[in-house]
Write a protein that binds this DNA or RNA. Structure first.
Lengths: 255, 255
DNA sequence: CCCCGCTCTTGAACATGTTCAAGTCGAGGT
DNA sequence: ACCTCGACTTGAACATGTTCAAGAGCGGGG
């Protein structure tokens, strides 16, 4: 009994409004949906909440499904009713940080019009958001790395999350006053997202205190990208640009 | 058989010569060594051999430690006497392919003096060597991805294997007739290796038939690298080159 | 020849992710 | 009021990676 959700719950309609103020619930197009009822949704949240807390407290590998179930006051099997596997619990973490990144990015993008600082700000914001979880992000990073895993950023299951992430970078480009080759402009958001994945990869491996090497990477790479992008308008470099874009296109073909 | 290592085996010294014709045995500086005797080494090989065969036949996840032990005719615990974990068995696969790549690369490098075809040849050779294992390389790729895993290409345990791999790219550069900035020449091998890791990453995710997208990636990227490297000698681009090298240096600092 | 010590081997026991058959619960129809 | 059906819940059972205490085998010193 959260008491918050309106009493007039539609009979069969899933209740999508989050009981507490957190950006998790919508979760963007879960798989083949079982038509959740209010009670179920509450249990689901409880399990997810408990799991993420324990992950942060003890680490991913050290948190057993039994511990999660016990702490949440349900049976182990119940967790598996809502989540296909232990790894799937991570998706919740994923979505949450994604939302937080978006929020932090908005703030940066509202204040700045130049491409370079926009990009730099968004990247740093992303690291800021994830920083508290660095130690255990590494632990479950391998789950995301496996190509067949639904957690992979390239998987079909993560497609909505991926699109949302790319959208941030689209806004970085679109909202900037940078003038650049139109075709490049079209491709750039996805390329920047790919770069962001690279930064995350670097960050996961970065054991320097406070991950300051990652910060330096961002600060060093952004100006280079900025310069490269500006150069894209030079007539002399047109052929080179075409070549690169053609390469990208050829690589994308046939998946 | 490598046949290079001297036949005079010291009494208590570990017998490093492989009983069968395969390039696995040396395995470059295993952890704190238990002084293996001949019998033990033979068992070790047997277990590794069996494991790799089953991995190829059934896949990594589907091969249980019990199955390996049973097939090899030993007890489960015995496998754990020689290998710290199931993942550690992969290191054997690793080393073997590394050696095969080196051999294939030598052949290419002996025949070609221009930088671009040398690089291209070595990259394609690497893919050739790994191609038969693509389907199950993906399965255990996650093991390598975890930063804390000894299997990570960046881990201290893989240091010898990594050095060996970088050496290939050093030969690509050193043996070529390309004239390039001396400082870049010094850094290039490691950068190319890093790029190779990127290619592998792409390859693991590449689901196109025959991984032809990876081939296209190689064919497209090599000319770009070649051109970039040539340009590094232009006086106009000196500052940019310095900037990039300084960035790399700053990122490398404090691990 | 016997014993000591070390390498090597064993298999049962353990921990934990996952599955499943058997329920319980509650809303909607009759 | 009762029935039904599907969402939800349970906990024991299972599969598998890993550990460990106990030994077996063997080489060398006395």
């Amino acid at each position: 009994m959260t008491g918050v959700t309106s009493a007039a719950a539609e009979p069969t309609g899933p209740d999508e409004s989050a009981p507490t103020a957190d950006p998790t619930a919508p979760a963007a197009g879960q798989g083949a949906g079982k038509p959740r009822r209010a009670r179920g949704e509450q249990t689901r949240q409880l399990i997810l909440e408990t799991a993420l807390r324990l992950f942060r407290e003890r680490g991913y590998a050290e948190t057993t499904m039994r511990a999660i179930a016990k702490e949440a006051g349900v049976a182990v099997g119940n967790a598996y009713y809502y989540f296909d596997s232990k790894e799937h619990l991570i998706q919740g973490f994923y979505d949450r940080n994604q939302a937080a990144h978006r929020a932090a990015a908005e703030e940066v993008l509202a204040a700045e019009k130049e491409l370079a600082p926009r990009l730099r700000g968004v990247l740093h914001a992303g690291i800021d958001v994830n920083a508290p979880y660095h130690s255990f992000a590494a632990t479950f990073f391998k789950s995301a790395a496996e190509p067949t895993s639904p957690l992979s950023p390239f998987s079909r299951e993560s497609s909505p999350a991926r699109e949302a992430a790319i959208a941030i970078f689209r806004e970085v480009v679109e909202g900037s006053n940078a003038k650049l080759d139109p075709e490049l402009r079209r491709e750039l958001p996805e390329l920047l997202w790919l770069g962001w994945m690279g930064v995350i990869l670097f960050w996961v491996y970065d054991k320097s205190p406070g991950q300051r090497r990652t910060r330096r990477l961002i600060d060093g790479v952004v100006p280079l990208i900025d310069r490269l992008v500006s150069l894209s308008r030079l007539r002399v470099l047109r052929p080179a640009l075409r070549q690169v874009l053609a390469l990208i296109d050829s690589i994308r073909r046939d998946d």
